[in-house]
Computed example of a mutant assay.
Amino acid sequence: MTENSPYTLKCSSSESRARRGEVKTRQGTFQTPVFMPVGTQATVKAVTPENLYEMNAQIILGNTYHLFIRPGHKLIEKFGGLHSFMNWQGSILTDSGGFQIFSLKDLATITEEGAAFRSHLDGSKLFLSPEDAVQVQQSLGSDIMMCLDTCIPYPAEKKEIIESTALTTRWAARCRAAHTKREQLLFGIIQGGMDHTLRKRHVEELAEIGFDGYAIGGLSVGEEKELMYDMTEATTPHMPDAYPKYLMGVGTPGDLVEGVWRGVDMFDCVMPTRNARNGMLFTSRGRVVIKNSRYRDDMGPLDEACDCYTCRNYSRAYLRHLFVSREILSYHLNTIHNLHYYLNLMAGIRTAIEEDRFAAFRKDFYGRLETE
């Protein structure tokens, strides 16, 4: 760990940009590369903190936009912050809300001052400035906070990309100036659209301001997979190696493997939890759509290579029955499995990097996949 950086490098792959490290927060230390389950509204949907501990989750993500609207950051602050409010003792990262405002662009207006938007719940008028975003997150008590940024759509004209990225830089400087509780880490978000030069320039601008970590934003916004990988590969070499590198909102198991290959340390995505509720389950041999009739009398576990609670105790036939019957237990058991799969995948990646065999791990990962 270099001075003022929460990141410590343990070892690097000789075959790729993959690296093995750890990040120290005031709540503890988590090992990287890491996947962060998404707990948008102070809950990882369908599971308890105890379930998360059992599957060795180290850090989860909450969302500033949603918690700002409901139940409100001041109420959460009265409980001593998110950790006490939701009874989670691991680390917490809060997204600034920029992506949610981007997603609700029909309800939002972006200006130099910040984002004016209407609540998706009741239509009430709300406003979030860069300073507000930091203040809200400081009240939430998260261990890692994100700067408010302007997410760029895909495709976009170069003029829009340049102007939007410049605004994100100005907002980042304002976030840094508003950051008074330095025990809470603050990460800057790299924009620049799908332009290599603009991405590199934006990394340099954010590094000049100085943050505790750096995140790649503005990907997985509709671009094709290869372009996302290309932009990640073009961006990570310019990100400061002494600090954590975070790829926001990505993605599939393959995306995690490819992101690590390109030097990413941290990931988050709603896919394992959302897909679980929709009956799409991730296994060592690929995706399983559990509602399919082929599983009606299947006595085997969902994944013979998995030791999660669901796979140890229930058959594919039972999981199918729960899902087609719309039983609430279906969400719970499916989510336990999908999150365990993601977290176990990351544990395997960490070991492979330590043993300098990540290329073989990557090859084996793809070699085992089957199509349903």
Rank of each mutant, 00 (worst) to 15 (best):
K225S: 04
A242N: 12
F211E: 07
D241F: 05
A207Q: 09
K225E: 07
T235Q: 04
H238I: 03
D241R: 08
L247Y: 14
Y229W: 15
M239T: 11
E233M: 11
M248I: 13
T236D: 07
L227C: 02
V221Q: 01
G210F: 10
H202T: 03
T232E: 01
L227I: 07
M248Y: 04
H238C: 05
M228K: 04
D212A: 14
T235Y: 01
D241E: 14
Y214C: 08
E223V: 05
D230W: 06
L219R: 06
K225V: 02
M239A: 04
T232H: 00
K245M: 11
I216P: 01
G218E: 06
S220C: 04
E226F: 05
S220L: 01
L227W: 00
K225T: 04
G222Y: 01
E226S: 09
I209T: 13
E226A: 09
M248T: 08
E224M: 01
I209R: 09
Y214M: 09
E233F: 03
E205V: 01
F211Q: 09
Y246H: 11
L247Q: 08
E208N: 14
Y246R: 11
A215N: 12
H202F: 01
L219H: 02
M228C: 08
F211H: 12
A207D: 13
K245E: 10
A242H: 13
D241I: 03
T232S: 07
G210T: 09
T236R: 12
G217R: 12
E223H: 01
E224D: 10
G218C: 02
L219P: 03
S220P: 01
Y229S: 01
H202V: 03
D241K: 10
Y246D: 05
G213L: 10
H238Y: 14
I209V: 15
M231I: 15
E226W: 03
A234P: 00
Y243P: 05
P237Y: 08
E223R: 00
P240V: 06
A242D: 14
L206V: 08
T235K: 07
T236C: 04
G218M: 10
R201H: 13
A207W: 00
I216N: 05
G213M: 13
E233L: 04
A234N: 07
I216G: 06
A207L: 03
P237D: 10
E226I: 01
A242I: 06
Y246W: 07
P237R: 09
G218A: 04
D230L: 10
I216H: 05
T236N: 06
G210Q: 11
P237Q: 11
G218H: 02
K245R: 15
L247M: 15
D230E: 15
D241C: 00
G217V: 11
E205R: 14
T235L: 01
T235S: 04
K245D: 08
E233K: 13
D230I: 00
T232Q: 05
E208F: 09
E208H: 13
A207H: 09
V203M: 04
P244S: 09
L206D: 09
I209M: 11
E233A: 15
G210K: 12
P237M: 10
E223K: 01
P244A: 06
E226N: 12
E223M: 05
M231A: 06
H202Q: 08
Y243C: 10
M231L: 14
K245C: 12
P244I: 08
G218K: 06
M248N: 05
P244L: 07
H238D: 12
V203Y: 02
F211T: 11
G218S: 07
G218D: 05
A242V: 05
Y214T: 09
D230A: 13
